[in-house]
């Protein structure tokens, strides 16, 4: 069995995602730009995948920079099944 867990930030638009990428980069956070997981929305969109250990820093960076995000999720992957949970 393979188990993976990571956080996902979704955005209001592609432009916000691009801005988010730059801001997180400047904050020296380790992240990856990924297509929004299908379990969150089937529309074509960009999201940011981050390490859940960094959740507090990601949250504070979003607040400080007034980044327009749509949602924050915890993604658990068991084998190839995804489980999504919204984080507040």
């Amino acid at each position: 069995m393979e188990y993976k867990e990571y956080g996902v930030v979704t955005f209001e638009s592609t432009h916000h995602a691009i801005r988010g990428e730059k801001i997180l980069e400047n904050a020296n956070l380790k992240f990856k730009t990924i297509p929004t997981p299908r379990e969150i929305t089937s529309s074509c969109g960009l999201s940011i995948r981050f390490d859940l250990d960094d959740i507090d820093k990601v949250k504070s960076t979003i607040l400080e920079n007034e980044l327009a995000i749509k949602g924050l999720y915890r993604m658990s992957k068991i084998d190839s099944k995804n489980h999504i949970e919204k984080i507040n």
């Binding site: 592609t14 691009i18 990856k32 730009t33 990924i34 297509p35 960009l46």
Partner: peptide, 19 residues
């Protein structure tokens, strides 16, 4: 070009996720 680079990153990441 900016979008193109992001799409490429996203595409290659997706390759790792799909068999």
């Amino acid at each position: 070009e900016e979008l193109g680079k992001i799409l490429m990153k996203s595409f290659i990441y997706t390759l790792t996720e799909s068999t």
